[in-house]
Write a protein that binds this DNA or RNA. Structure first.
Lengths: 344, 344
DNA sequence: TTGAAAGCGCTAACAA
DNA sequence: TTGTTAGCGCTTTCAA
């Protein structure tokens, strides 16, 4: 119990430690680790014993830096919210048995400067840490500059640029709006997403299309920007719901579930009953949508499958197989308890 | 449109490219990037211009390898399933504004060899890529060998070893069992978790305690291992529900929501109605629990808060502040539609 | 069968 | 103010 021992707590063993302990060169240790031929049985066993003894594992960073191939797939997200978490589950599931490891990177910690994070993340990780990347909801056009295969999910770009996986935003939004219209709503508010994202633009377009098709025109004063984020949606939602009874919308279509749930909260605060006084419909069908009060009607994107698909496309690119580079997945209207015909 | 251009697509710019282009040394570029003093204004501007022009970003790997500090927090999980995804959201939320980046690593892609992945991940990432780690549901005792601060969530260890964040498993399980008992169930099955995990052991203990407190003894033939995983829970659940009517349990307590949801599916397959013919209660309260059919009664762990807390503890360790190293969070019984009094 | 040496992209003394 | 040099932990020729 003396304190004279080496303070070895800081000492993560390196390949040098193993080499010294086994009485061989680091090159030999490296060969043993990577199963290269040309190492004597006896030497190999001795090295392996030392490795086991020291609990040595090679540094992912050091070997990735040296090798061309790293064996890891990167998933780049701005932050981990329900949407990206669902995708991640799909990607993770699809990765089983491929031999690749998964590293998910949250780039933008600031709520602002939510733009350009993907280019930065990509540059910082590409080649030296990841062999390929799935970028979730990029906020700008991704160019191929990183030099690794990239699949963008719900991308900003059109059919050019990187490989993409998305869902049919226009049709999905149209279904949501049609649902509200069919229930008899006419004073319908639209709480939009991030104007810089393609998906947000398309959802707004789908919303408008539904109105035009019904011979109606959306009320411009009821079109707000919610930025896909609860914090950003708070003010515009509050504004909308605080309108005097005759002007207040009878229904709100929020461009994603997170802001729809925020609308639910604010309605509750203001004493508005959902769906009696106000119908609310969201978009995405993240798990949280089912557990809100009341359960949220929404448009489902097959998030899990989109993750699986994105991975499949990426792996194909990595192995040089040809594959459809742009996959569009279907959306589905999910009617739960937050939508009903308007009162009166 | 000639193909004679440089095939520069593979060419992620490095610091050498920047240096060459700007006509300075690599060291100078490094100084500019890191805002070190001792660079002439004019030089700095020129370098910055080149950096901008080339779209250069320093490699996280290379700089991490060289520096002692990496500026990234690692979250180590076996795979991304709902449980770890929820924690991740909390951690991600807590990270905002701290200046740290987040890298989540999925270590074990195999369904088997689910043990020891955390030691491996930790060794491979510690020091060279991450400054500190949050390990989710480690399957073995974590030692400090990695040389970086570690917080374990739902750990295998007791109060010794690394810092920990967990919830009150015994009490939570007891609440679930008491709920079933109070409804009048007597033939109650327990679909356990992974026997090697502490949380699974404690939940079983809580289950037994509830029975003993009621003067009852759980039927040993109704105690099965579900491994916390849908795939592993399938067979034992099927076995349980296929018992002849008089022996079949009237209620199942599954040690986590994922296996409880599997029970729901199998009950449905076998034509058993929930909750009329069979009550089912889970554990965790992952978002999926609310959207199952029927919505699942369960025991809630404050997953999001546990993530926030784990991060808070880790950050305190990183900055050398003293802090409670073992945080136990409360659990809560959530009664939804999957539990009811037994028929007859 | 083994090891010396170079180098992946970067940072940090230290010199010039 | 700038550049030279060493080296982080590892892999990979290439000689011995």
């Amino acid at each position: 119990m003396t304190t004279a021992d080496q303070p070895r707590k800081t000492a993560r063993a390196t390949i040098v430690d193993v080499a010294r302990e086994a009485g061989v060169s680091v090159a030999t240790v490296s060969k043993v680790i990577n199963g290269r031929y040309g190492v004597a049985e006896a030497t190999s066993e001795r090295v392996l014993a030392v490795i086991d003894d020291l609990g040595y594992e090679s540094s992912l960073v050091a070997s990735s830096l040296r090798r061309k191939r790293t064996g890891v797939i990167g998933v780049l997200v701005a932050e981990f919210e329900p949407y990206s978490a669902e995708l991640l589950k799909g990607i993770s599931a699809g990765l089983a048995g491929t031999g690749y490891e998964l590293l998910a990177h949250a780039g933008s910690t600031d709520v602002h400067s939510r733009t350009g994070w993907e280019r930065r993340s990509l540059s910082r990780l590409a080649r030296t840490l990841i062999d390929g990347a799935i970028v979730v909801t990029p906020s700008m056009v991704i160019t191929d500059q990183a030099g690794i295969p990239v699949v963008a999910v719900d991308p900003h770009t059109g059919p050019d640029g990187p490989a993409t996986v998305d869902s049919d935003n226009i049709h999905g939004a149209r279904m949501a709006a049609d649902h509200l219209l069919a229930l008899g709503h006419r004073r319908v508010a639209f709480l939009g997403g991030r104007p810089d994202l393609r998906s947000a633009q398309l959802r707004e377009e789908g919303f408008r299309t539904a109105f035009f098709a019904a011979g109606l025109t959306p009320d411009p004063s009821l079109m707000k920007v919610g930025g896909y984020h609860p914090d950003l949606a708070d003010a515009p939602a509050r504004e909308l719901l605080s309108l005097p009874a005759g002007q207040r919308p009878t229904a709100v279509f929020a461009a994603n579930d997170l802001s729809a749930i925020k609308v639910l909260q604010i309605a509750n605060e203001l004493g508005l009953r959902v769906p009696e006084d106000l119908s609310v419909i969201g978009y995405d069908n993240v798990p949280d949508a089912a557990s809100s009060t009341p359960p949220l009607s929404t448009v489902a994107q097959p998030l899990h499958d989109m993750g699986v698909t994105a991975l499949r496309v990426l792996l194909a690119m990595l192995t040089g197989q040809s594959i459809e580079r742009h996959v569009r997945m279907p959306t589905e209207l999910i009617v739960r308890a937050s939508t009903a015909p308007p009162a009166g």
